[in-house]
Design a protein around this nucleic acid. Structure first.
Lengths: 228, 228
DNA sequence: AGATCGTAGATTGTATACAAATCTTATGTC
DNA sequence: GACATAAGATTTGTATACAATCTACGATCT
């Protein structure tokens, strides 16, 4: 079988090890919801689907566990993380603490090229908003936030926030389907870029803080509606 | 060879997989400085020392990389992380942001038994201060901080902070050897417990914040002295 | 001499094979 | 019928073996 993973490696462009390529593919499937929360990841099934052995697959699983996307229980396998409402709230609380701090450090160093790329993301975002492509929206949201922080010079925090964004993405998507959060986020994102380019960094990081809080509160509202 | 790892497993008490036990032992060696920063971790050498194959060893390495204790470069192996001064400062900045938040959530739920255990740690701490057992001091410091936060109900943040404490431990040790930071920390720790048991939670988390800032500043001072 | 290339040895990455643990299902007992 | 138990099947964990990559060092060329 000529799997996408093996093919990607064979072409030799992007990936350096099978384990890394496999982690990437598994991550994609989890983030897009192709592997939903609670899904059991069987080593043998996945390895043979990808045309690889279980060794690199296991290493990919370990990587995903470190990112918090799956949970591995010894001798019992890996499942896609299911987060309680409290855990989802924790994700957003952490983001509220960390992201404004990153923005404050990074925003003064954003270049003209950065702003162009940010605007491009916002444009595509608006377009996907009309086509209701929620999955693509999540990717763009993560990219947008990370791009804002790219010059923060805080690698460890960036790693943490990247994981937080990925973990919250699946759940944010849910919120957006049921509320007006998407339009609101669109406005806030645009305003955020404007403030940064106007060098109003304190105002920008305050807006960012309330932006994350807003997303959180409309998400928790949507969640409690669902459980009712 | 009858390695401690294999023996530990054979006794069957603590560990569920060889990979987990190996990670624990490697972590211990890094934290105690037995494997110093920059040390190359050769898979074959370590595996045969532990009497295991390279498979569980590799999985242990992945775990340590996720914790930030080592860095793995594909096809080139793993080395114990060397942190720049900026990266060390980042560790403390993150702790300054996260730990007071955890304390604020956890402190109101500390029980009498918790306070007894905290006091016990402080006592042993004072004892080790006299014997100059810096390694044990680091363990106690990490335990002390984590015990304060144990009821925060924020598992993800706890994971992050645990990693931060472990990563900063090695470097804190350095500071303590050259400054009066150890006595100062002792006083601040005692005061912290007192404030918590007196239910002065806001004051406690403010003290914690300045405590971490204090450790950071005397550490950066020690580091700049060394480089001169 | 310095640079480039190539080869041998060392080291990491992955496949295959086997061992240990868990889950399933059938059976028996009360 | 409910529960306990044990054998078989499934799944994960680890050892061994082989493949791919990197490193070091020396030969060759300009």
């Amino acid at each position: 079988m000529n799997s996408p993973i093996a093919a990607g490696i064979t072409k030799g462009l992007a990936h350096r090890t099978l384990a890394a390529a496999t982690a990437e593919e598994l991550r994609r499937r989890i983030l897009t919801g192709s592997f939903p929360a609670g899904f059991q990841l069987r080593q043998d099934a996945l390895a043979s689907e990808f045309g690889i052995s279980r060794i690199p697959l296991r290493e990919a699983l370990l990587q995903l566990e470190a990112e918090g996307l799956i949970k591995i229980i010894p001798h019992r396998g890996a499942v896609v993380s299911e987060l309680s409402i409290a855990e989802i709230e924790e994700l957003f609380d952490l983001r509220t603490l960390l992201e404004p701090w990153l923005l404050r450090a990074s925003a003064p160093r954003l270049t003209g090229g950065d702003f162009a790329r940010l605007e491009a993301i916002l444009d595509e975002y608006s377009h996907e908003l009309r086509t209701n492509n929620v999955i693509r929206w999540g990717e763009l949201n993560t990219q947008f936030h990370l791009m804002l922080y790219q010059h923060s010079n805080r690698p460890r925090t960036m790693t943490i926030v990247t994981a937080l964004l990925q973990a919250s993405d699946r759940h944010t998507r849910l919120q957006l389907t049921y509320t007006d959060g998407m339009e609101r986020a669109e406005k806030e994102h645009a305003e955020l870029v404007k403030l940064c380019s106007a060098q109003q960094f304190d105002a920008a990081s305050e807006l960012l803080e309330s932006h994350i809080i807003n997303v959180k509160s409309s998400l928790t509202q949507a969640l409690s509606n669902l459980s009712r």
